[in-house]
Nucleic acid binder design. Structure first.
Lengths: 341, 341
DNA sequence: AACCTTTTTGCAACCGGTTGCAGTAAATCA
DNA sequence: TGATTTACTGCAACCGGTTGCAAAAAGGTT
């Protein structure tokens, strides 16, 4: 079916090497030869077989894009950014959906069978050990949105979730809330654990503030709504730091449904600053995670690893920032007076 | 780096063919041989190179998954379903993002270079000509969510958008609305055109009903919100058939913002029945598109084409159904009286 | 024009597997 | 037990390219 290099060579009346060289940049070919070959190739509609060449070059230009979150719209943004950034560099994403698959060994094996040049694990819930298995298998790997540990075994690009937890805590403290809570994502997600840790540790400086926490079953709207309904039924806190925006928006919908008001009765602060957070009828106060930068940096890193597979693991953490919108009450007058007095 | 078949053969003290055969099902190998080889393979951590074997078998088990909509959450559901269904069959999705790329020739060339076994174009906006270019290049292709034409050139799996337009029209008619409108997605999207056509043609049977239409710039929340704001400012219709749920939800947010009420002041009916449509605080009346069936059927079809590349093009259309929720007013009493009287 | 470089080119081996064919070993049959 | 099938196994060629090496061609010098 497909035209091969051999056929082009025959038609152009040259050797196969000559054809190969015209399609390999950096190879030594005379102008005359190049023109002859290109003409034959055009006539035949030839385009080189990337997989066959990968056999000798050792490069497939395939990058495994591994994720386990296909229910959080933020990941559609993430996939969009990843696929475009990869395409811009002539790389191709081989998508792996971990939803039905928890054993890293299977993903590792599969991606090795396809000789991917590298792997990007895009997940804020998987533990470092997951991406570690790729490294152990000799596959260059970058964990995007992953957990940063003190002794990183793999490259991590993302944010400091502990610091984000602290940032959320400081924000709620500054707004004068006296009874706050963390409504996290799934309890076993690394991001949940880290955000909780930061939140609680910052709150420890303020024994006058009552702190509690619960977990939603997933980073999804539904889970956020359900969890907040439960909380409202059992007497809610004044303000919640929700695990992410999706949970926050789910929570908002539960509050609205209950007849309570945001921010008067319940304050909410999210994390991510996804597109929807900006809508006027949502207007979510949140912590912005620079996903564009994280994605680009992840790809730069994985590309760098192609030439330097044993590159020393590093963590690239990007600062987050508060985006103040309408789901937290204003800075209270009483607090102002206390401070200035 | 990676262990090759040759090394396994040497360690097991057998020929390379023997090793190859133990990893090819259906091949003739004795139990003794199999055990010997498997042991050696296990010791060495061997797993066969899928790309090398594709060279002789002509099968890569790669399927190109091509889309141009990375801003509509419904496509996250679609990607989730596709990737899982493919993985279940031992196939791998090679993701192509068309956002920056309009020329089909480039996608075709790229996917041919990677010798994909087949391609699924997942888009409700691309014209049939797009997927046709894959067929012309000899690549098995299925267009999911695509336009069904009277003389199909490629396999199409999806819904009858014209009929959906009619269905929306009939629903609005039944509710007794006298001034209705279509707020479509981008004007050049095939789904927009077809839904409009069906809507208008059905409305033509009722000259007493006033009909108008406009288009949002994209299938996105933002676009829906903007368009509805404009419409409200210039005097809105009583009820809108929105191009899809995402537009509907955007529109809802604009209505809410304007102080008007749904469904009392403005009725809205969407299309897709995405997850969010079910939320209590959205509670969108919509036309359900059976995406799970569409995805599964698309994959069955593309798999069938692997063995039968010249299979005669067919259109597989799945019926849609109204999901009645809270964004259209109740069936009016006056109308009931008219009908029974 | 003879000689020395520098480019180009083709040969042939190789990348990691698969597979038709022929030969060998095992199994079945009389 | 010998003859005949049948089941395994290995050889060698091939899939579609790449690349080191040496020969050939082209370009430069004196």
């Amino acid at each position: 079916m497909a035209v091969t290099l051999k056929e082009v060579a025959e038609r152009a009346g040259v050797s196969r090497s000559a054809v190969s060289r015209t399609f390999t940049d950096g190879a030594s070919v005379s102008g005359k030869m190049r023109r002859k070959v290109e003409k034959a190739a055009r006539d035949l509609g030839y385009s080189p077989n990337a997989l066959a060449s990968s056999l000798t070059t050792g490069r497939t230009k395939l990058i495994g894009l591994v994720s386990n979150n296909f229910h959080n719209p933020i990941f559609l943004e993430v996939f969009d950014l990843f696929t475009r950034a990869l395409q811009d560099r002539g790389l191709r994403p081989l998508l792996v959906n971990l939803t039905d698959e928890t054993d890293p060994a299977n993903s590792v094996r599969m991606l090795r069978q396809y000789s991917v040049d590298g792997v990007v694990v895009a997940s804020s819930t998987l533990p470092p050990g997951f991406s570690k298995s790729f490294r152990d298998a000799g596959v260059p790997v970058v964990h995007s949105f992953g957990r940063h540990t003190s002794n990183p075994q793999v490259h991590v690009v993302g944010i400091d979730n502990v610091e984000c937890g602290r940032m959320a805590a400081r924000t709620l403290i500054a707004r004068g809330y006296k009874n706050v809570a963390f409504m996290g994502g799934p309890q076993d997600a690394t991001s949940t654990q880290d955000r909780l840790r930061g939140f609680v540790s910052e709150m420890e400086t303020r024994p006058d503030i009552q702190v509690s926490y619960t977990f939603a079953t997933a980073y999804s709207f539904e889970a956020g709504r359900k969890e907040m309904s439960k909380l409202i039924a059992s007497g809610p806190a004044q303000a919640y730091f929700c695990g992410d925006d999706v949970l926050s928006i789910g929570a908002l919908s539960a509050v609205e449904e209950s007849g309570l008001n945001v921010p008067d009765d319940i304050g909410i602060i999210g994390l991510n600053d996804m597109e929807m957070a900006r809508w006027e009828n949502i207007d979510l106060t949140t912590i912005r995670q620079p996903i564009q930068q994280i994605v680009n940096s992840s790809i730069e890193l994985v590309v760098a690893m192609l030439d330097e597979p044993d590159r020393y693991p590093e963590a690239r953490l990007f600062p987050c920032s508060i985006v103040e919108r309408g789901t937290l009450r204003e800075f209270p007058v009483s607090q102002l007076e206390t401070k200035t007095g």
